[in-house]
Amino acid sequence: MIELKNISKSLGKNKILEDISFSIKKADKLVILGPSGSGKTTILRLIAGFEAPDQGQILFDGENMNQIVPSKRGVSMVFQDLALWPHMSVTENIAFCLKAKDSKAKIAEMLNTVGLEHKAKAYPQQLSGGEKQRLALARSLVFSPKILLLDEPLSSMDPLLKDDLKKLILDLQKKTRITMIYVTHDQAEAAQIAEQVILLHQGKIEQKGTLEEIRSNPNNLFVKKFMGVK
């Protein structure tokens, strides 16, 4: 279980996050929804360990992670810009995440899962947008992390490709039973990814629950406006 307890984060005088608390059970999915600049990515960066909270605790199965370095958290992340290593081929991008002894079989399996067997030797710049997404996903899952963080991974995709990739993400999550936190500003996307949603605005949680609950019972004017409730 992942638990965030009273997390606050500032950058200089700007409060990025204020008193954020939520939890997510093992193998569950959660969507963090909110407009640009609401602090969604910062939450992911705190969970991954790239930034430390000013206040509060991040707990994985009850263990405080605040002092644990990113590489020892068992977290993986698909970045908004995918962050594929441009000097490495598809295979090398995946292999980097593995120990040498068991890498060959795992790479082949993962390439097969995401449908990139035919592009094993290609470099990221030789891939299409969808293929890059698949590679980013494969790279994030190949070393069997406990938690998968996705930072608006489909934001620059066309609708047709989006649907394909959404399906792939959900299939992989189901298959691997990985705990998944998905960040987006798109309600429709949120609805397709997970039931449980956190709505964030100006660094504060405005409402938690299912999308249906939020739509039918908006807490305040912002939620009402953001969800398009008349």
């Binding site: 590489s71 490495m88 995440c97």
Partner: peptide
């Protein structure tokens, strides 16, 4: 881009491997 380093940091514990390969 920092993300290139951060993604390596999540995937690999050895700093020397990250330095050498990324």
């Amino acid at each position: 881009h920092r993300n290139l380093e951060e993604s390596a940091e999540l995937a690999c514990q050895s700093w020397s491997k990250r330095l050498r390969m990324i």
